[in-house]
Design a protein around this nucleic acid. Structure first.
Length: 132
DNA sequence: GCCAACGTTGGC
DNA sequence: GCCAACGTTGGC
């Protein structure tokens, strides 16, 4: 079981939208590194939901409910089905993540433009702890 | 095959 | 609104 972080601009699709829908197909990702990660996902993996731009916070936890499917006009991109697990009691801001030395190696920090990134188990646990 | 130009993302 | 980082495109 693997851990991930997936970004969305709340003005485009927010945590509230995900709760309202009860789950969604995470599609529209057009970046090769992100595609490789989407392809590596398996049902049961969990992902942090990060709201970029105006929020800049991790706000909840999602579960991957299936494997990647073809996306885009020629089917060469990848989409995965996700469902919400639970919100964090308090959002973990980007500023808080940057202020924590143990999280300095997170892909979120290292490559800020990557919209789908792996999360190490230690990082996962720490972010959840910070969100209590 | 290199690299400049351009477009997009996303933090500040 | 600005700009850095990164990806892509296209001329040569």
């Amino acid at each position: 079981m693997a851990y991930w972080l997936m970004k969305s601009e709340p003005s485009s699709y927010s945590w509230a939208d995900l709760i309202r829908d009860g789950g969604t197909m995470w599609d529209g990702v057009r970046n090769n590194a992100a595609r490789l990660h989407l392809r590596a996902m398996k049902a049961g993996d969990e992902a942090l939901f990060y709201q970029s731009m105006e929020d800049r916070s991790v706000v909840g936890i999602m579960r991957i409910t299936g494997t990647g499917e073809p996306d885009g006009p020629d089917g060469s991109w990848v989409k995965v089905p996700v469902e919400p697990v639970r919100p964090l009691a308090k959002p973990v801001t980007l500023a808080a993540i940057k202020a924590e030395p143990k999280l300095a190696k997170m892909e979120l920090i290292r490559q800020s433009r990557l919209s789908v990134a792996p999360v190490r188990e230690e990082e996962w646990k720490l972010v959840l702890e910070m969100g209590k």
